[in-house]
Design a protein around this nucleic acid. Structure first.
Lengths: 147, 147
DNA sequence: GTCTCTGCAAAGCATTTGCATGTAC
DNA sequence: GTACATGCAAATGCTTTGCAGAGAC
């Protein structure tokens, strides 16, 4: 299942690369594979560290450039949890969703609320905007930390 | 009306300062007054530049520290439009609201949707979180830029 | 007088950029 | 062979911090 996600992501990458006449490099494949393996909400720095473990030759800049590429290719999306660095999450084979995060311990829940999505669509329509991304993050204190 | 907002903000600041046994300094007053005057979605850097115009002695760090103070005092809130720096907005005498922003030109509309607020409350309740902040920003292409 | 606040400059991060070299096509 | 991609190191931009002196209470 993780394997399938990875294949799907790689397929999407190569489709995007050939569509845009960009080059398929081993780095891009390796970075994408590692990114998918890591699970979610990854920092460029965290991904760079993970990559170093089995291919120490991949540079800092390449990781940053690859992540931007993945966003353009609609393989990943940016998340900003206001913790100092941008995080990336794979959107391959995933339901759209939002996040609620504990301000104390960082515990996070993903949720999907259809009524919110619809309201967002209506708002965009009302103001004549073509909706591209939705950044919706709730901050609170989780049950454990409330005790 | 702007005057009243400013007075309200200053009052809230001094209440917070005495509650927390912190000191009322002229810098804090000046920074708050200028912040309110500037209107909304201000960067620390922008505020610093504005301040330099009539009091060149206020330092960088003081502006950053003051803005954090205003957030703690519930005079301002942080906004992250993913444009590289944190923005601050006064919440004194204002309805709660969210933003929809044009990815091309930056045009921005504020909106308030009660159904979204309620859905957020329900989600927080469902997962047992005590809701503290809501970060909800939509990105799209505005009517002008779509033409 | 004490303790906090300020201004300055330096430090700290995350991210981007310039450039020479490498490599996909 | 010709772009485009990469790695490196330097640069950039935002924000924080350490510290000595200034100011509030």
């Amino acid at each position: 299942m993780k394997k399938e996600t990875k294949n799907l992501a790689l397929k999407r990458l190569s489709a995007y690369l050939s569509e845009k006449k960009l080059r398929a490099t081993s780095q891009r494949e390796i970075i994408l594979g590692t990114f998918i393996d890591m699970g979610k909400h990854t920092t460029a720095e965290e991904l760079y560290e993970a990559l170093k473990k089995f291919d120490s030759s991949i540079g800092h800049a390449t990781v940053y450039r690859a992540l931007r590429l993945f966003v353009d290719a609609e393989i990943a999306r940016e998340l900003n949890f206001n913790d100092g660095s941008v995080r990336y999450e794979s959107i391959v084979g995933k339901e759209p969703h939002d996040h609620i995060i504990c301000k104390k311990c960082g515990a996070m829940v993903e949720f999907l609320d259809e009524s919110i999505r619809q309201a967002q669509d209506e708002i965009a329509k009302k103001y004549g905007y073509a909706l591209k991304n939705r950044s919706h993050i709730l901050f609170g204190v989780c049950p454990k930390c409330r005790r």
